[in-house]
Every structure is written in structure tokens, then in C-alpha cells.
Computed example of a mutant assay.
Amino acid sequence: MTYKAMIPENTSTTVDFQSWFIPIDMLNMICSVIAIILALVFLLVLILDKLYHSVAMILVVNSCLAEFIFGFYLFAITIFTFRNDLKQIYFYDVFCLLMGYIGYVAVAIQNYSYLLQAIYRYILIVYPSRLFYQSVKFQTFLIALIWICCIIYPIPLVFTSQIKYLVNDQICQIPLQLSFLTIFCAFYFYLFPILSIVLIYVKMVRYVHEMSKHVTPVNRLFHAQRELRMIRRVVSLIFILVTLGFPYAIFVFMSFFNRTPKYQFRIAFTFINLSLVFVLIALLGITEPLKTSLMKRINGRPTNVVQTFT
């Protein structure tokens, strides 16, 4: 069946209501709620057990906070979509535009938070004597700088009305098309941080390999190998983001040739919601102090956690 869309531009269109809209909305809602709960639990454990004293754990707290904000965005926009689909109405308001802005901020902070973890591990291996770059002060400065940059970059998108209501997808996003804006956003919040993490990992593998060839103190080589294992875990986490974010990347590429499917964002955001849950589970798995502290709380034992991160 077709229904008339109510949109502010006073133009009309028709929208095909599909039977799979509501089940997908409910799946997205469940995934976003699980993600919010996991991120909130991780943050509470990190704060209550005072695991944030080391630089590495501060970076983990930053990632958990980013995931919490991203989960909140996904939940809010899913509620908006679900309400409109359920009532079969088609219109947007300021809330939808605001959520579109928050979405671009949240996904950028998420990806750059993992880049900061990779950079920190790289500094520990390649520049172990440069203590300032390993300090809480410098790493906190990097976190603040990333947040400021991620908050600022989508502002022009709002004031120039680049974020639009896409009636078929019931979402406010930048329409996918061959344009400088599409390429810039995809590069800024997705390609650059992820490719940078992979590049850092490759450079660290080569560096550790060269260290093993030369006469190197055993403790330094062991330390370098340990940090390499840590960044390998971050790369595996990024692999989840890349795999489940692949449909979105494919749709961006297809948009250059005007061949995107009709409900591109509905499809892409379903995978994004799933990825957030898997990423948080993976984050728990690679963060030993967090996992140990959480298990002790579940088992009802004392939560004095030995810090294993620098």
C-alpha cells in the first residue's frame, strides 16, 4: 500500500510501507538497548573499581563513553523510525535533525577513540623513552582534541541544511551521492581512523620484527611484543566494525553511480546496530582488567583488580 508523506517542504510523495519495517525496527531497538546497557555497565565498573588510573584504561573509558553515546543515538533514531512506521506517518522535526548531527559526532568519536588506543601502543613500543607522550596529561589532551574536532565538523552540515529527512528510510542523514560532502564525511569519520589503525599495526609488526633481529634487551622485546598483542586485539575489534559496516561503505560507493537500493539506510543501520553490540562484547574480551573486575562483581567476590595495563 502507498501513503502520502507529510514533509515540511509542502511537497508530496508516495512511500511503500513494507511488512519488514516493524520487525527490523524492533531488532534495531533491542540491539541499541543492549549496547547502551553494556556500555553503561562497563563505565560503572571502570569508575567504581577505579580502573581509570592508568593511561591505557583512561583510553578504554573514552571508548566506552563513545559507545554509550553512539548507542543512545541509535536508540533515539530507532524510536523515531519505529513510531513513524507504526503510525505510517512521514514527517520530521528538529529532533530528527538533532539526532542526525549527534550520529555523525558519535560515530567519529567511536572510531577515533580506537585510533587513540593504537597511537598510545605505538608510542610505548617505538618511543619508550618519551615519557611525556605517554603521560596522562598528553593523552587527555588528545582525547579532548578529538572530541572537539568531532563535535565541530558536522555543525556546518546542520546550518547548510545538508542533513535531510529521507522519507523512505525515516531518518535524517546526508543523502548518499557523488559529492565532495559524501566523500569527505566517509573519509573523515570512517576511512581515515580505520586505515590509520591498520597502518600503525603494520608499522609495529615491522618494528618488532626488526627488534627481534638485533641485540635487544629481553625485557624490552617482551614489552614490545605485549603491546603488539594489545594493538592486534584493537585491530580485531576494528575488523568487526569494518565487516558489519561494510554494507554502508558499499552503499556509499554505489551512490557514486546512482545504484543504491531504495531502503539503503534501513539496511545499513541494521548492521550498524548489530556491530555495536559485538564491538562492546569484543571490547570486554580484550580489556583484561575490566573483564576481571566484572566477573568478580558477578561472582560476588572483592573487586581489588591488579592493573595489568600501563
Rank of each mutant, 00 (worst) to 15 (best):
T2R: 02
M6D: 13
I7R: 11
N10H: 10
V15T: 10
V15E: 09
W20C: 00
W20N: 14
I22D: 08
D25R: 02
I30E: 04
A35Y: 11
L38G: 01
L40P: 00
K50Y: 08
K50M: 09
Y52S: 15
Y52M: 14
V55C: 05
A56F: 00
N62H: 07
F70Q: 11
F75H: 09
T78P: 02
Y90G: 09
V94L: 05
L97R: 05
G100R: 05
A108Q: 05
A108I: 03
I109H: 00
Y112S: 04
S113G: 07
A118C: 00
S129W: 08
S129Y: 12
Q134G: 08
V136K: 14
F141L: 08
I155A: 12
K164V: 00
Q173E: 14
P175T: 12
Q177V: 01
T182E: 07
I183Q: 04
F184T: 11
C185I: 15
A186N: 15
F187D: 07
Y190L: 12
P193H: 09
I197P: 01
M204L: 13
R206L: 15
M211T: 07
S212I: 01
H214V: 13
P217H: 10
V218Q: 11
Q225S: 10
M230A: 12
I231V: 15
R233D: 09
I238N: 06
I238M: 13
F239S: 10
A249F: 02
I250K: 02
I250S: 05
M254K: 01
S255K: 11
S255Y: 11
F256D: 12
F257I: 12
F257G: 05
Y263T: 07
T270V: 09
F278C: 13
A282F: 07
T287C: 13
T292Q: 10
P302I: 02
T308N: 01
F309Q: 13
T310I: 11
